[in-house]
Design a protein around this nucleic acid. Structure first.
Length: 109
DNA sequence: TCCTTGACGGAGA
DNA sequence: ATCTCCGCCAAGG
């Protein structure tokens, strides 16, 4: 076989994508929570990098991932911010002052 | 190989 | 509750 060099992070990336697909509509998760669930505590930033690399036409619910503060990790005037907020509202997630109540919407499982 | 960047998180003022 | 600073880790220049 050809030397499978980079397997470690690649495998973890796949785990992150799987967890992302696990998030049901109407609920959200945080970068840190996904990282921890993937067995990578403290890798919140890495999760962000993985999502950033997702293709524009991905079927994965990337919009259900927010930061630990319950807010969207995009500038309020940016296009992705508007798009994410739009999708969340469409799923029945309530944003109060551009903030989401993790208490109510964060996936517990 | 070193420095900078980034869809983060948490503590402090 | 808002803002700033520091620590975290991987990827890119």
């Amino acid at each position: 076989m050809t030397t499978p060099a980079n397997t470690q992070t690649t495998h973890q990336q796949d785990a992150i994508l799987v967890l992302l697909a696990q998030i049901p509509a109407g609920q959200v998760s945080t970068y840190g929570a996904i990282a921890g669930a993937a067995g990578l505590p403290g890798y919140a930033r890495f999760v962000g990098q993985v999502l950033r690399r997702l293709p524009k036409d991905t079927k994965l619910p990337w919009h259900r991932v927010i930061n630990a503060q319950g807010k969207l990790s995009f500038p309020e005037h940016s296009a992705p911010f508007i798009e994410q907020k739009k999708r969340l509202l469409k799923e029945g997630i309530e944003l109060i002052n551009n903030k989401i109540s993790l208490k109510k919407y964060q996936q517990k499982c």
